[in-house]
Design a protein around this nucleic acid. Structure first.
Lengths: 262, 262
DNA sequence: AACTACGTTCGTTAATATCGAACGAACAAT
DNA sequence: ATTGTTCGTTCGATATTAACGAACGTAGTT
C-alpha cells in the first residue's frame, strides 16, 4: 500500500505520485522522519528520495528540522487544507446543528465523509463530559466498524462496494467487530431500512454511537453525522429517542444543503 | 509568480513543482477551476496540465466535479493539513492563553507565523463583538502592514530581510500603509526596542491591532500573537495596558514552549 | 445546424528524473 | 584519539519518462 510501484491504470506522472506518497508517509509517522527512512518507506533510492523531498521542502509542503536534519509536514499543507475546508458548504451549514445536538445530550458529535473506503472526520463538537473518545478532525478510521462508516457505505452502490472491498480483510478491533462480509451486508440493509446505524463497541470498547446520513441537493449521501458516548451512559438513555434525534438533525442539515423530500 | 519556469537554484523535480503550483492556483481561485484555466494559470499546455491534474485527482489532492468537469481542492489536503496542525505544540500550548486574552478585551486574537515573507494565520479566537474583521485560519496576509507581520519580520536578520524583500514593492492598502523601506526599517527598530508592534489602520480601515512575539526553546521567534479590534474601541482603551497584556501573554506562551529569560 | 470551448487521448521526441557511487559531517563505540 | 557507522547531500551517465501538438468526442451556444 505504501509501495510506489503498485499503481495500475492509466498514465500518471510518476514523480508526482511518488512525492505525494512521501508526504503521506511522513504524515503516518506522526513525527519527524529521516530521509533514508522515507526512502525505505516508499521503496525508492536515497538520491531519488532526496530530489523529491527537497522539491517539496522548497515549496513549503514539508520542512526540515535544521537541528536533526529530519523532515515533517509543512505549513503549505495547512494553508491548502484550510482553503479546502473554506470551500465546503457542508461544514459551515452543519456546525450549528452539531452544536445543538451535542448540547442536548452532552456528548461528542462528529461530521464525516467517505474517502477511499475509509471514514474521514471533517468536523466535531466535543461534549463537556466526553472523556476517552479519541478522535481527531482530519483523522481516518475504517468504515466497517463505525457508525458513520456504516451509514456512508450503506449508500454506496452494492456492486461498487463489493469492488472496493474486494480482497480487503476487515480488521478486528473488539470482540463485537463485524469481520465477515455477509453479516456486514445484512447490517447495511438494515441501515438502509431504518435510516440510521448503531455502533456498539465495534471499534472501541465502551464506546457506542448512532449515526445518520446527510444528503445534498443531488440526492447523494455527502456525509454522515454521529453522536458518540460511553456505553454506560448511552445504554441509560432512550435509544429510540437518540436515534430519532440524530436522524432528525441529519435531515435538517440535508434540507439546508438543498435536499428535498427528507 | 505563478509562472512555472522562473525557479532558479539547484536541481528540483519539475513535474512535482508544477503539480504543487497547480494546487496553489486552484486554492487561489477560491472556486472550481477548469483544466484549461489552470493550464493557462501556470503557463503549461493543456495535455501536460491534464497529466499532472489527473495524477493529483487520483490521489485525492484535488477532485473533479462530475457535473461541470471542473476541479477543486481535495480531501487529502485537509487530512494532511490537520496532521500538520496536530504535530504543532505551538497551537495547543497557545490556545488557552489566546482565549484568556480574547475574553479580557472581548476582541479577536490571532496566532500567526511567517512564511516566505508573508503572514499565515495558524489559529484564532473570535471576540463576541468583533464584527467586520475578515480573517481566516490558514489565510495569508502581507507582513509589512500587519501587527503580527511587523513583529515577525523585526526578528529576521536584517540582511536576510533585505534579500527577501529585494525588489518587492510594498502594496498600499490604506492611507496609513507604510510603503517605503526606510520608514519600515526604522519602525522595525522601534518594535525590537519596545517588544511589540501596533498596526493602526495600515492594512484595513477602522482596524487596529497590537502584536507581540512568541519565542521557542531555541530562542527563535516562532510566531506572533495579536489582539485586533475596531479603531474606535481600541482608541478608548488604555493602549499601554493592552500592549502590556499582549506582550505578557506572548511571554507566557514562550515560557511554556521552553523559552528562558522572558 | 454550425460553431465554439471544453476535457480527454495518443504517439513521438527530447528533455528529464533516476540510480549508484562517492563525499563530508555528525555521532557512538572502542 | 580513532575507528566505524549512519546520516543527508552531491554528481554524472543512462534510459526512462514526461512534455507537447494535434486530433477526438462532447456539451452548450449562437
Amino acid at each position: 500500500m505504501l509501495n510506489v510501484d503498485d499503481m495500475g491504470g492509466d498514465r500518471y506522472i510518476q514523480s508526482v505520485f511518488r512525492a505525494l506518497k512521501m508526504m503521506e508517509y511522513i504524515a503516518e509517522c506522526r513525527q519527524e522522519a529521516g530521509l533514508t527512512e522515507i526512502g525505505r518507506g516508499v521503496g525508492l533510492s536515497k538520491s531519488t528520495t532526496h530530489g523529491l523531498i527537497s522539491t517539496l521542502e522548497r515549496c513549503g509542503y514539508i520542512r526540515q528540522n535544521p537541528a536533526t536534519g529530519k523532515y515533517s509536514l509543512g505549513l503549505k499543507l495547512f494553508e491548502l487544507g484550510q482553503a479546502y475546508a473554506a470551500g465546503l458548504d457542508l461544514r459551515e451549514v452543519a456546525l450549528p446543528y452539531l452544536r445543538e445536538l451535542s448540547a442536548r445530550y452532552q456528548e461528542t458529535v462528529h461530521l464525516a465523509v467517505l474517502s477511499e473506503g475509509d471514514v474521514v472526520y471533517i468536523d466535531k463538537v466535543d461534549g463537556p463530559l466526553s472523556i476517552g473518545i479519541r478522535s481527531r478532525v482530519g483523522g481516518r478510521n475504517p468504515a466497517h466498524c463505525t457508525g458513520v462508516g456504516k451509514v456512508l457505505i450503506s449508500a454506496v452502490d452494492p456492486k461498487k462496494l463489493e469492488l472496493l472491498y474486494a480482497g480487503k480483510t476487515m480488521k478486528r478491533f473488539t470482540e463485537h467487530t463485524v469481520t465477515d462480509w455477509d453479516t456486514l451486508r445484512s447490517e447495511l440493509q438494515k441501515v438502509r431500512e431504518v435510516g440510521y446505524a448503531w455502533d456498539r463497541e465495534e471499534f472501541e470498547n465502551e464506546l457506542w454511537c448512532v449515526a445518520a446520513p446527510v444528503r445534498d441537493g443531488s440526492d447523494t449521501v455527502a456525509a454522515a453525522i454521529s453522536l458518540s458516548g460511553p456505553a454506560q451512559r448511552m445504554k441509560s438513555t432512550d435509544r429510540e429517542q437518540v436515534a430519532a434525534d440524530v436522524l432528525n438533525t441529519a435531515q435538517k442539515i440535508s434540507r439546508q444543503l438543498g435536499y428535498r423530500d427528507g
